[in-house]
Amino acid sequence: MRVSGVLRLLALIFALVTTWIFIRSYVSLDMKTIRLPRWLAVSAAKKIRVVKTKCGLSKPCPNDFFAFKISSGAANVVGPTVCFENLVIMSPVKNNVGRGLNIALVNGTTGMVLTQKYFDMYSGDIKLLEKFLQEIPEGALVLVASYDDPGTKMNDETRKLLSSLGSSYAKQLGFRDSWVFLGAKNLKDKSPFEQFLKNNPGTNKYDGWPELLELEGCVPRKVF
């Protein structure tokens, strides 16, 4: 009877130990399966975190560079947009754009907006535009966006002044062309920041107008 009792006791102890080991392993496994998704979720969140850039650029600018984005108008329906260092200077939403040439001046060292204005090439703003271009201060960055028609009534003096800012296309700017540009006063070389599309009935995206242009980039704080 004693041997039988001992065997039963050992069997009970074995069953208890086995059950304890099983429960501990299950709980440990269960905790892992609970924690693992949380760890993966945190890791995934880090991987898909979107880096916000100034003016919505495709990549951030280095230190000591200004971020900018200029969009021309779309036909005579949607006005242009000028953004500098994440500040929208001109846009249809701000209601400060118009057909013709839309121009913003920014301090090339501090990034402070100096002024913004649009010039209607239909209504004879050409003399006002001439005066405006002649009085651009040294060290200013000049951001330009066309809308509807930037070339009508453009004269030689205006084209010369725009070319002196670094434009390669000011001399050929014509009726309903699309143009976006960033230059500077008395720029020694041609600006690398410029896009131009000629009004061509065979290639126009819109009825009577070429497609809108979008120019973005990083410009050094000191005038290039």
Rank of each mutant, 00 (worst) to 15 (best):
94 K>Q: 15
95 N>I: 08
96 N>C: 07
96 N>V: 05
98 G>F: 07
99 R>G: 11
100 G>I: 10
102 N>H: 11
103 I>H: 10
103 I>N: 10
105 L>D: 04
105 L>C: 09
108 G>I: 08
108 G>H: 04
108 G>D: 03
109 T>E: 14
109 T>L: 12
110 T>M: 06
110 T>E: 07
111 G>K: 09
111 G>P: 08
112 M>L: 13
112 M>C: 03
112 M>Y: 13
115 T>Y: 00
115 T>V: 05
115 T>M: 05
116 Q>H: 15
116 Q>C: 01
117 K>Q: 14
117 K>A: 12
117 K>G: 02
118 Y>N: 13
119 F>M: 04
119 F>G: 06
119 F>P: 02
120 D>L: 08
124 G>N: 10
124 G>S: 09
125 D>G: 01
126 I>N: 12
126 I>K: 10
127 K>V: 12
127 K>L: 13
130 E>R: 15
131 K>Y: 04
132 F>N: 11
134 Q>Y: 01
136 I>L: 03
136 I>A: 02
136 I>W: 08
138 E>A: 13
139 G>F: 10
139 G>W: 05
139 G>H: 04
140 A>P: 13
142 V>H: 03
142 V>N: 01
144 V>K: 03
144 V>Q: 05
145 A>N: 06
145 A>C: 13
146 S>P: 05
147 Y>V: 12
147 Y>A: 09
149 D>M: 08
149 D>C: 11
152 T>C: 02
153 K>D: 14
154 M>K: 01
154 M>Q: 08
155 N>I: 14
156 D>E: 15
156 D>L: 10
157 E>T: 14
159 R>N: 03
159 R>D: 00
160 K>V: 10
160 K>P: 00
160 K>Y: 13
160 K>R: 15
161 L>N: 00
161 L>P: 00
161 L>Q: 09
162 L>V: 15
162 L>P: 02
164 S>H: 04
164 S>R: 12
165 L>S: 07
167 S>D: 05
167 S>Y: 04
167 S>E: 07
169 Y>I: 00
169 Y>C: 05
173 L>S: 01
174 G>M: 03
176 R>N: 14
177 D>G: 07
177 D>E: 02
178 S>D: 04
181 F>S: 07
181 F>D: 02
181 F>Y: 08
181 F>R: 06
182 L>S: 04
182 L>M: 15
182 L>D: 00
184 A>K: 03
184 A>L: 02
186 N>R: 11
186 N>M: 04
187 L>Y: 12
188 K>M: 07
192 P>R: 11
192 P>N: 11
193 F>L: 05
193 F>N: 06
194 E>G: 12
194 E>L: 13
196 F>W: 14
196 F>T: 04
199 N>L: 08
199 N>D: 12
199 N>I: 07
200 N>I: 06
200 N>K: 09
200 N>E: 12
